[in-house]
């Protein structure tokens, strides 16, 4: 959660780590609701692994249904190995990890749009651009 300190200039952010086994047994809708609930609490969610492609689309749909004057939506970023350039051995290892671990591989970041302005990513690097508070004189 983003909190102002008593001095008013410092902001505290909550990064909520979600291990994959916390969503593993949930239905697709259950996963989406759980992750979105955390984002709506102004937490930046770090999910171990990734959602299925259809679940990502469903997450966007559900996000749209929840948007109002307060909640503006989310920023979403997923990184996982095996898609970037690299030597053959690295690709083989990444493919093997994908086969063995499935959706546990990678990292999904979901941040509320009121806090996270943009998530920029390369295949194996991710940058969160945060919204800055207006300066007061």
């Amino acid at each position: 959660m983003k909190k102002k300190t008593s001095k008013g200039s410092k902001m505290a952010l909550t990064l909520q780590f979600v291990p994959y086994n916390e969503i593993e047994d949930l239905s697709s809708l259950g996963r989406i609701k759980k992750l979105l609930k955390m984002a709506k609490e102004n937490k930046i969610v770090l999910l171990e692994g990734r959602l299925k492609k259809e679940e990502e689309a469903e997450l966007i749909k559900t996000t749209m249904e929840e948007i109002d004057d307060e909640f503006k939506g989310i920023e979403l970023g997923v990184i996982y190995p095996g898609k970037g350039d690299g030597d053959l051995m690295k690709k083989l290892k990444a493919n093997l990890a994908n086969v063995l671990l499935g959706d546990r591989v990678g990292l999904t970041i979901i941040g509320p749009a009121s806090i996270v302005k943009e998530i920029k990513k390369d295949p194996d690097k991710i940058q969160l651009l945060m919204k800055t508070e207006p300066r007061r004189r």
Binding site: K52, K53, E54, E56, A57, I60, L76, G77, V78, I119, K120, K121, D122
Partner: peptide, 17 residues
């Protein structure tokens, strides 16, 4: 624009799926 956004990846991934 930067093409490597999650929205683009999600759209294409869903079409492939």
């Amino acid at each position: 624009k930067d093409p490597y956004t999650q929205v683009n990846i999600t759209i294409i991934g869903n079409l492939v799926a």
